[in-house]
Amino acid sequence: MKVIFLKDVKGKGKKGEIKNVADGYARNFLFKQGLAIEATPANLKELE
C-alpha cells in the first residue's frame, strides 16, 4: 500500500515521502498513530 508519511518514522520514511509499505503495517500502526495517510489521488493532490 502506498502511504504519505506525515512524520519521520525511523527506518521507514521521512515526512512528505511517498512509499510502499505492508498493508497491515500501514493500517495497524502508521494510520492509528497518525504517522501516515493513504496515498489516494485526493491526498496526493493536497500534498502538492
Rank of each mutant, 00 (worst) to 15 (best):
A39I: 05
K12D: 06
G34Y: 08
G16W: 09
N28K: 12
K10E: 15
K19P: 00
V9N: 02
P41S: 09
D8H: 08
A42S: 12
N20M: 15
K10N: 11
G13Q: 02
A39V: 08
I4L: 11
F31L: 13
N28D: 14
K2M: 15
V3I: 09
F5W: 03
K19D: 03
A36V: 07
N20L: 15
E46V: 12
K12Q: 15
L44W: 06
T40M: 05
A39Y: 13
A36F: 01
Q33S: 07
I4W: 03
V9R: 01
R27K: 11
G11Q: 04
L44Q: 05
K2G: 06
R27Y: 13
T40R: 05
K7S: 10
F5Q: 01
E48V: 13
G34K: 09
M1A: 05
F31Y: 05
F29L: 08
G24S: 15
L6I: 11
I37S: 04
V3P: 00
K45L: 13
A42M: 10
E46L: 14
K45V: 09
F31A: 01
E17N: 05
K32H: 09
F5S: 00
L44D: 05
L44T: 08
Q33D: 07
A39G: 05
I37Q: 05
K15I: 09
R27Q: 11
A36Y: 01
F29E: 12
L35T: 02
K45Y: 11
N28I: 08
L30Q: 00
G11L: 04
V21I: 09
G13H: 12
L47K: 06
E48I: 14
L35K: 04
E38Q: 10
Y25K: 07
A42L: 11
G34M: 08
F29W: 13
A26M: 08
A42F: 10
K10Q: 14
N28S: 10
V9D: 01
A22Q: 14
L30R: 02
A22Y: 11
D23Y: 14
F29P: 02
V21L: 05
I18K: 03
Q33E: 12
L47G: 08
V9Y: 04
A22F: 10
F29K: 06
K45M: 12
L6Y: 01
G11R: 05
M1Y: 08
G24V: 12
E38K: 08
E17D: 10
E17I: 02
F5Y: 07
P41I: 12
Q33A: 11
V9G: 01
A22L: 11
K14A: 09
D23N: 11
E48D: 11
A39K: 02
M1P: 04
K7Q: 13
K45P: 06
A26T: 09
L44K: 05
R27T: 10
E46K: 11
V3T: 01
F5G: 00
N20E: 15
E48H: 12
E38T: 05
V9T: 03
K7M: 11
A42W: 07
V9E: 00
K19Q: 07
G13L: 02
K15T: 09
G24I: 13
K19S: 06
A22V: 07
L47H: 11
T40K: 05
D23F: 14
I37K: 06
L47V: 11
K32P: 15
R27S: 08
N28W: 10
N20D: 13
A36D: 01
Q33G: 07
L47N: 09
N20H: 15
F31D: 02
K12V: 15
G13E: 01
G24Y: 14
F31M: 07
I18T: 05
A22D: 15
V21N: 00
K32A: 13
G34E: 05
T40P: 05
G34D: 06
L44G: 04
R27A: 08
L6T: 05
T40H: 06
E48Y: 13
P41E: 14
K19L: 08
K45R: 13
K7V: 14
G34W: 05
